[in-house]
Amino acid sequence: MIKVNHLSYAFKIGKKEKENVVPVLHDVNLQVEKGEIVAIVGRSGSGKSTLLNLISGFIQAETGTISINGTKVSGLSESKWAEFRLSHLGFIFQSFQLIPSMTAYENIELPLVLKGTNEKDRVERTKEMLKRVGLEQYQSHYPGELSGGQQQRVSIARALILNPPLILADEPTGSLDSENERELLSFIKELNENYGITFLMITHDHEVASIAHRKVEIVDGYLREGRMLREVQR
C-alpha cells in the first residue's frame, strides 16, 4: 500500500542563501501492506509527523520516493496531489480539523462536494455515514456544539465518506478522554477488520499503538522497525 524508499528531509530555516538546514529524516525506508495497521511512534521532534506529512503530500521531499497504492506520488504537482488525496486518502487529525462554519452534515459531505458527486448520492451517503458513526441527531450541529468525541467521529466520517483504501491518522486520540479513546480504537479495528482499510497512525500512546499490527519507531530521524505486535500478543 505504501512504499517509502530512501526518504530524507531537512527543514530550511532563515532567509534564502543564508538559510540553516536542519535534517529531520535520514534515509527512511518503510513498507506498509494493504490491510495493515501501522503505528509510528517516537518522541517529540523525532520526525514522525514530518514522515506523515511527506506521505500526505503536505510537504515535498527532496530525496527519496514515496509510492501509494502503486502510484508514485513524490514529485506530483500540488493539483495532482490534491486530486490524489481526495480519491485515495482519508485523514484523522488530533484536533479534528472540522470547518467551524459548517454543520456536522456539511463537514462530512465536503469530500463528496469536492469530488463533484451528484446531490442525490451525496445525501444518501452522508446520511448513511452519519448513521454509521452514530451522529444522526447531531447532523445540523456545528463543531462548536459537539463534544470532542463527537467531533472526532465527524472527522472519521469525513475521512471515510469516499471509501479511501488508506487512512492517515495523526495522534487520533490526542484530544479525547479515555472512554472516547477506547471507542475510537475499537472503531478503527472494526474498519480495518471489516473493510480492509489500511491505517498509518502516528502516536506516542501505547494503548493506541497496541491495536497496530506493526509498530515502527523513529529515533532522531532514523526509522527502526518494530516487531509484529499481534504476533507478540498471540
Partner: peptide
C-alpha cells in the same frame, strides 16, 4: 484555516 482543511482533504488550488 478553512482553506487549509479543504486543501488537506483534496481541494485543488483551482
Amino acid at each position: 484555516q478553512d482553506i487549509g482543511i479543504m486543501k488537506a482533504i483534496g481541494a485543488t488550488p483551482k
